[in-house]
Design a protein around this nucleic acid. Sequence first.
DNA 1: ATAATAGTGTCTTTCAGACAGTATAGT
DNA 2: ACTATACTGTCTGAAAGACACTATTAT
Lengths: 302, 302
Amino acid sequence: MTSHSGQDTITEKQFLQNYDADRYERPSVSVDLLLFSVSYQERDNYRKLSNKVMQVLLVQRGQHPYLHQWALPGGFAGIEESLDEAARRELASETEVSDVYLEQLYTWGEPKRDPRTRVISCSYMALVDSAALKLRAGDDAEDVKWFTVRRKVIERQDNHEENERITSKTVKLEFDADGIHLEAIVKTTVDTEGKDTRIRREVLQSEGLAFDHATIINYGIERLRNKLIYTGIVFNLMPKQFTLTDLQQVYEVILDKDLLKANFRRKIAMMVLPTEYMTKDDGHRPARLYRFNPQWKREQNF
Amino acid sequence: MTSHSGQDTITEKQFLQNYDADRYERPSVSVDLLLFSVSYQERDNYRKLSNKVMQVLLVQRGQHPYLHQWALPGGFAGIEESLDEAARRELASETEVSDVYLEQLYTWGEPKRDPRTRVISCSYMALVDSAALKLRAGDDAEDVKWFTVRRKVIERQDNHEENERITSKTVKLEFDADGIHLEAIVKTTVDTEGKDTRIRREVLQSEGLAFDHATIINYGIERLRNKLIYTGIVFNLMPKQFTLTDLQQVYEVILDKDLLKANFRRKIAMMVLPTEYMTKDDGHRPARLYRFNPQWKREQNF
DNA sequence: ATAATAGTGTCTTTCAGACAGTATAGT
DNA sequence: ACTATACTGTCTGAAAGACACTATTAT
């Protein structure tokens, strides 16, 4: 065993007392919240079903940089709180709902992502059901809005070479709320050379969206999609009771794909339990209301 | 639109010049590397196959805190580098291999996880194939070792109540290298109340492992398992050419489960391409060598 | 009655799981 | 010849995908 420059001669307690945290220059750490919901659009026909749309919460910036542009809610992490706590604190400051699913998404650490200073941002995804969807009536309430989101893949590339493979996907995101229209184009490039895989996520174009937040939203939608397929995460977007058609529509709007009713119902059968309640006054046959089956567990493949 | 305390009257450029990054107290940000590999154990019979074991790279601390204990390689993130770059820099300082798969795992931000000061740690998982498995012959080379890892679930709990469900899983991790034995017990508790899900990961017992690193290792193994099933991540643990039995053993050691040969081969058939080469001198029938099929793409469910 | 949705039955194809069998090197 | 592994064939049952059919409400 090599000797370690006298470290053995002082106790851990002494070491901690002498420790100077300012030896290294430290970045700022912020927490950004990606708050998703799936909600209804007004219906054009009294007996037709209302359309569902995916929504994301954005706040209008009242400060430089990106003044007046829209950004994900967030703020700096306090020195005495955990990142989860910081995310919950931000959530509470923007919305009134407490019953929210929260999971860490990804930590963004590009040096130039914030023009002020080095800011590392730990992003969280939160899911709210549309029934509980209320904003906090705070002083800055006018600057917070739920935007509908549409996501469209506008280009795919796939270049194989000898030992290198570069694939890219370009996605257009569109946001609407009360006549406000934002859009952004985001490109994800995966460069694989042997096992060395580098992923670059860049904002090609942004109209009204601050920072690299379009990238974060795109990443979040992809994560949500994957989790939708393999886990029971959907129920965090549903009210306590829901019809199976409601549930199917949430899947459809997130996956951006139509599903066959009979097959869908068989697939999710184990995940839900029927209640005694039915819808009514809908202009057509009533539907049974279901709730999440808390006993449900996904079975393991392989 | 509300007016924002005169922010409109200065330009973004002026704002950035006046910006004081020291307004908030900032935590330290470190990057920790979870370097996995699957390698052979010596074989006891000349014609039997060698057993495979999962391995993780640990470094012995030469400093307080946790002096002489073993920890994941890592260090503080530089102020001018991205987190990915910091991870690659740490990787290069510990090993000689450059052809490594690297992905961000999770960011750990509990206030008390480091006794020195508030340290937020962004963890990365890296995969190396056993053929390339060489350590950097640096001055501190003696303090870096590949440990074999065994993971065993020693307790599961599942309590349903009215509106709350608490599940927990307790895992024992054992590490061995050159007669050095480390072990740790890690407990993961998921507390779900409606949609409000809180996950607590704690180290119940630790013999020789520093910080909360046992938690990180456990999380990494779980992530690796999931990715093994749904993605082509295995091939980052394989040399360029391998037999299908090799590949199956890597699955088996990571999933900790025996698989049936015929079924396994059908399942991974599309992911590999046969080469013209065969093994030889093994005391039994030679096996064809395969390589990863770069064209392969997993098909989408749902 | 009609429009619109709720909900079920069943056929086909695909795939996972289990198991038994054949093939081929080195000693 | 024997041992240990390499590799293949096939049966069963479950699940995915497609589609057609019946049921029930408000107007």
